[in-house]
């Protein structure tokens, strides 16, 4: 019986995810605070292909989590999408009704948050919450749903029976985050949004979680949007990388291109301020001038912290093509 379930789950996966074009296309997305008419996310473009991972890097307050919330259609009522479109497969997310959007959430787009402690409702057993997800999207017999849950719990290397009958507070942090991932992939979503999934975990557990995500992605052939403020997480895992600052995308491209040839001063400074193992110990770690959150009101958001700032930076920079599939928004770049 277990074997047939496994087969069914596997076969179901083979049918979807064949498109070559990007699975997720964000164009010109702008998110505004209603009350003060301030744009928190300004005209960003992003795209992810099926089976690929996009690392969205930026410091706190740069608008990365907000972008993720907008993808899920769960922006708080004080915020609104005032421009642009989000397309997932053949769904125009920005024009779906609340009811249609609910069916997309969890089934097509899954979400793993940084706060694993309260990913699950604290007073309901984990297994019950998994079954609830399955039954919310398609009428499934409880015994059938249980088998699917077991399958995925085993997949993320958790003791399925014990976890199924545990309350969230009875698991460790790493276990909870694994359970959260299992819950996210339960319905074979096409896109997983992982919003800083390792922030609250220790370094080794965090690495394991990311490796697990990467491994599962291969099997599911889904796209992953990995939001992080830690460059090292995305450098060796993601296929593409996007650098965000002050609600705008400053640079975006294939990870190896951006790494070898960073075009934006901010990207270059980010790479320089990483801790690195080298033979010579540098006297001082390079830092970026100014405080995080120091965002220029008009023009390039990084202008007030940029060492190469000049007059033109008061204007919003055009997006320039650095090389094939590598873009930058900077006046100084050529």
């Amino acid at each position: 019986m277990e074997a047939t379930i496994e087969k069914q789950i596997k076969n179901a996966g083979d049918l979807v995810h064949t498109a070559e074009e990007s699975l997720l296309e964000i164009e010109d997305l702008t998110i505004t605070i209603d009350s003060v008419k301030k744009d928190l996310v300004k005209q960003i473009d992003l795209s992810i292909k099926a089976g690929e991972m996009l690392g969205l890097v930026g410091e706190s307050g740069s608008g990365k989590s907000l972008t993720a919330t907008a993808l899920l259609g769960l922006l708080p009522s004080s915020l609104q999408i005032t421009g642009g479109t989000i397309r997932l497969g053949n769904h125009q997310i920005t024009s779906l009704s609340e009811k249609e959007m609910r069916q997309v959430r969890g089934k097509e787009i899954a979400y793993v948050s940084q706060n694993y402690q309260s990913f699950f409702t604290p007073f309901i057993k984990i297994g019950k919450q998994f079954v609830e997800v399955i039954q919310s999207h398609s009428p499934t017999k409880k015994s059938e749903a249980k088998k699917i849950v077991r399958y995925w719990l085993n997949k993320v290397n958790l003791p399925a029976d014990r976890v199924f009958n545990s309350y969230p507070f009875q698991l460790s942090g790493g276990q909870l985050q694994r359970a959260a991932i299992a819950c996210a992939i339960l319905l074979r979503p096409r896109l997983i949004i992982a919003d800083e999934p390792t922030t609250a975990l220790d370094v080794l557990t965090g690495e394991k979680i990311l490796d697990l995500l990467r491994g599962l992605q291969k099997e599911l052939n889904c796209a992953i949007l990995l939001i992080t403020h830690d460059l090292k997480h995305v450098m060796n895992r993601s296929d593409e990388i996007a650098i965000m600052y002050g609600g705008q995308i400053l640079e975006r491209g294939r990870t190896c291109d951006v790494y070898q040839n960073p075009a934006h001063p901010y990207t270059r400074l980010l790479f320089q301020s990483r801790l690195q193992l080298s033979k010579e110990v540098t006297k001082e770690l390079r830092t970026i001038y100014g405080e995080p959150g120091l965002i220029a009101e008009k023009g390039c958001p990084f202008a007030r912290r940029c060492p190469y700032v000049f007059e033109a930076c008061n204007e919003i920079p055009q997006i320039k093509t650095v090389s094939d599939a590598h873009w930058v928004a900077c006046h100084a770049a050529n």
Partner: peptide, 16 residues
């Protein structure tokens, strides 16, 4: 609470 956001992200119905 965050678990409500997570629940919505899982596509649970609003009455649940």
């Amino acid at each position: 609470e965050d678990f409500i956001l997570a629940g919505r992200a899982r596509g649970l119905k609003e009455w649940r």
